[in-house]
């Protein structure tokens, strides 16, 4: 499917950039005139993915988070959120609802569950020591 728009973002893994990432993605998809609920779904999913990079990918170290976005002709938004942090040893386990490796930070273990529930597709690629890429895909309904 033909790509009608693209973007790339890189920013340091600071928790204040979680809000920046949500705002930037919102602005990127504005051209599709999403409903309030579609916009909120994508913002929430992006927030979870970026928080995972900050909290888990880079733990206490700092690193760079990369987001690349694409909008296709059939109104699909495809977002890749990538870190080059520690990676996930067991992706299946990491995606189980309520599983968390950071209970002391009061992480609820719901990040992937939220992404899966709020997007049409979620793909996770990870290699320990190399980092993690989460791909989120959501189709925005046709102009009303």
């Amino acid at each position: 499917m033909k790509t009608v728009n693209e973007m790339k973002l890189s920013f340091p893994s600071k928790s204040c950039n979680e809000a920046f990432a949500r705002a930037a993605v919102s602005a990127f998809i504005a051209m599709l005139d999403p409903t309030v609920s579609e916009l909120s779904d994508l913002k929430t999913a992006v927030s979870e993915a970026v928080t995972n990079c900050v909290v888990h990918g880079y733990r206490r170290d700092s690193g760079t988070i990369h987001i690349s976005g694409k909008i296709t002709e059939d109104r699909r938004v495809i977002l890749k959120i990538r870190d080059t942090g520690v990676g996930i040893a067991d992706v299946k386990q990491a995606m189980e609802p309520l599983f968390t490796t950071a209970p002391e930070e009061e992480r609820a273990g719901l990040g992937f569950a939220v992404m899966q529930s709020f997007c049409d597709k979620v793909r996770v690629r990870s290699a320990t020591g190399k980092g993690t890429t989460v791909t989120l895909e959501k189709r925005i309904s046709d102009a009303r």
Partner: peptide
């Protein structure tokens, strides 16, 4: 106005 799963942790 907005909440992700961090609100659940809270």
């Amino acid at each position: 106005g907005f909440m992700d799963s961090s609100g659940v942790g809270l």
